[in-house]
Design a protein around this nucleic acid. Sequence first.
DNA 1: GCATCAAGTGGGGTGGCTCTTCGGTTATCG
DNA 2: CGATAACCGAAGAGCCACCCCACTTGATGC
Lengths: 203, 203
Amino acid sequence: MSDSTARRPLRADARRNYERILAAAQEAFAAHGAGASLEEIARHAGVGSATLHRHFPSRRSLLEVVFHDRVEALCARAQERAEESEPGAALFSWLGDFNAYAAASRGLAASLLHDGRDTDLLQQNDSCKMMITNAAGELLHAAQQAGAVRPGVHAEDLLTLVSAISLATEHHDDGRAGRLLDIAIDGIRPHRHHRAATNREAP
Amino acid sequence: MSDSTARRPLRADARRNYERILAAAQEAFAAHGAGASLEEIARHAGVGSATLHRHFPSRRSLLEVVFHDRVEALCARAQERAEESEPGAALFSWLGDFNAYAAASRGLAASLLHDGRDTDLLQQNDSCKMMITNAAGELLHAAQQAGAVRPGVHAEDLLTLVSAISLATEHHDDGRAGRLLDIAIDGIRPHRHHRAATNREAP
DNA sequence: GCATCAAGTGGGGTGGCTCTTCGGTTATCG
DNA sequence: CGATAACCGAAGAGCCACCCCACTTGATGC
């Protein structure tokens, strides 16, 4: 194994500041979204902005750590869903979980879509995105095996879609997110025969 | 009718600057998205930033005018689609048009989702959003009448969904936008009888 | 205990952004 | 051609992310 988490014991005050920044960031992102002021976070944590930038070289790296625990819980939830339901239902209800998590912690969806322009070239450490993609991928694969989802759909596409929905509905308090998610879920269900081109069923 | 377009003849140099700013903005938004620097736009237009802010009090108002022509064309396209195809096909192909337009002019999708936080309270002049919502609404209504789209879907929801897809896929050059759009379209189609839970069609 | 010193810190600087103010310029009209 | 109101942009206020460097402090060996 690599020594990624404990490269060097990290001095006590440094660790303390690290945690303070994290707490302040969690609060700020929840209150003002993923674009919250980093300087404000540093101020609220009682450290200089230089300290924040040393611990977290980019806004993205901060988001990554802040959301890590939550993402881990979400992935664990995927496991539970897989065990307690049949594949199709497991995937669909987990997508609901995802949406709920994204709504509860603003900025998560934006962070997952990650616009690419932030870190420009280094994109190896987007562990959150990878964790979720993997979790979604397993549920999706099982659902496809069971015939509850049609084969053409890929995990990344699905994740992009629900992230996009969560991001777009972040500011609407009506049930829009749920309705759009339902549309998306119906959209990945298998086609039932595609009967004829035009249907002329009079209601 | 009101005198909205010609309240007062507008001095010649003012009109000239107005057009220059618009041209520079079009270019900048296309190059850097809806968040492009206003100062950079002013610089590139050869005017002071004060002039830009006088003509366009908010970023949103600038986006509105820049995209107005394009949006008008898109709405006209909706009319054409309605006349040349049956209702369902008209809506679905127009959604493709929408996506193509959004991809061609970056920032349009972001502008339509408009996050709300920009102008905060005054939202009466989002004419672009209204024009598109109306155009989509007509196509949608016709499609629902014809039974090609299920009744529960609302125009605003549909617009939010496709805007979200366009925005999320803005940075991906693979066919992701098209695939997600297909999912969305399948998602608004009427359920076909809901026959049994699992289908067992052997191909 | 205490001296040593690298790891860690934050004040302050740089440059960029949005948006406003205000004295000077200029198109327009009598 | 002169008056005047419309129009202009340089300069500045108040944000922001990010960086440099002299100073502080926790860890460690004696």
